[in-house]
Design a protein around this nucleic acid. Structure first.
Lengths: 228, 228
DNA sequence: GTCTATACAATGATAGAC
DNA sequence: GTCTATCATTGTATAGAC
């Protein structure tokens, strides 16, 4: 027999990721879980905390898988390829987002919903649970691309995470009326890996990079890089 | 004197993008706008429609600016550079997201919040208001990179839009406790343009692309491209 | 057509009994 | 730990004034 807390957590994950946060009432959750309404407040404090805890376990599992893959990549060869590292970052996430059996795809949509809330609590929450993972990836990549300033690397990692989040949440179809033929997770991940790797490798110290742009009469092209 | 409808729209934009959708009640909006609560339902039907209309004018302005820039790029030279095209896509959005004076940055956060709702109405809404813009960019890029299959181009454009959305909403700081020194919009846009251009140019027909990956025992690397 | 006052069901949250 | 009862607030709907 599951504890009241567990019953709430499992029911909440299913309902929240299926219907969204705002559209799922605590009463609906407790009714399906066959527990009392007040039990939510007793065990989790309020609705937001419940939502956080719902995906915390999933988030930890995802990041652990990423780190394990990264360890394998580092351990298996002394010359690490950039693609392999990016793969360790991207694959687990995209596989999870395409896994309908264990509810992974629903969970991913829940993450996307949470993203948009964009509040302070979520900020610190993500910093605590994602921060060390991103840092490890950044450090590893820096051994592969030693000429890239660490700040530049962080921006580029943001680009990659942004693109990943976007395709994970399946926003992709939004811009075409017809929709788009689905690709399997592997192919889609491979494409993103190749795209990201090329983008990262393209970096070269400022100067030769801006010639190609067509000039607009905006502010002058001041580009100060404060770091080596 | 502003019409009731206008007062609601302006107040709603400010409050919604500042506090989020769920946290802003219709009563708060009407109180600040000094109009009656029922006026919202009369003029907009319901809360969701109000939210849509709030950013519709902003969205149109953004896309018109993009298309105008694209026209300039196409008109000014017979050999169009990929960077210039991506710039027309990225610059207006990133400039808007960094414009605190005219409320652009707040508006951008509102977009990000809406993204996560991920409902059917928003899907068709975005298809109607973004679809033709993306199509024009895709067509233009295809003249620059004629060897890229149009499907591949759509995925890559999704990657770019994803990365753009991410940095626009300023999610960037989420993964580090310390935060990150802000860059001006121009520099950040230039970085994303260079990153995206390199990623797009990196495409080459399947086969030579997968060698570098570390093998996992997942599904075989089936990648069918049904389109030229 | 435009606006107002009012009512209603549902929600998240809490206090207190057991 | 669990439950009942209750609260203020929410989005929405309607009837009627101008």
């Amino acid at each position: 027999m599951l504890s009241t807390r567990e019953k709430i957590l499992q029911t909440a994950e299913a309902l929240l990721s299926e219907q969204g946060i705002a559209s799922t009432s605590l009463r609906e959750i407790t009714r399906h879980a066959e527990v009392n309404l007040a039990a939510v407040n007793y065990h989790f404090g309020n609705k937001q905390q419940l939502v956080f805890e719902v995906f915390q376990c999933r988030l930890d599992a995802l990041n652990n898988e990423r780190l394990q893959l990264l360890d394998e990549v580092i351990g298996n060869s002394d010359k690490i390829s950039l693609e392999a590292v990016l793969r360790a970052l991207i694959y687990p996430a995209l596989m999870l987002s395409r896994d309908t059996e264990k509810g992974g795809s629903r969970f991913v949509k829940l993450i996307a919903r949470l993203y948009a809330e964009n509040n302070k609590e979520l900020h610190t929450f993500l910093a605590n649970h994602y921060g060390h993972v991103m840092k490890r990836f950044a450090i590893t990549i820096q051994t592969i691309l030693p000429d890239m300033p660490s700040q530049e690397l962080r921006w580029q990692l943001d680009f990659v995470i942004g693109a990943l989040t976007y395709v994970m949440a399946d926003f992709s179809g939004h811009f075409s009326k017809s929709g788009k033929p689905k690709l399997d997770a592997i192919s889609e991940a491979d494409r993103l890996v190749a795209f990201a790797a090329a983008g990262m490798r393209s970096f070269q110290p400022r100067s030769a990079q801006t010639d190609l742009f067509v000039a607009t009469d905006n502010k002058t092209q001041q580009t100060t890089t404060n770091q080596t």
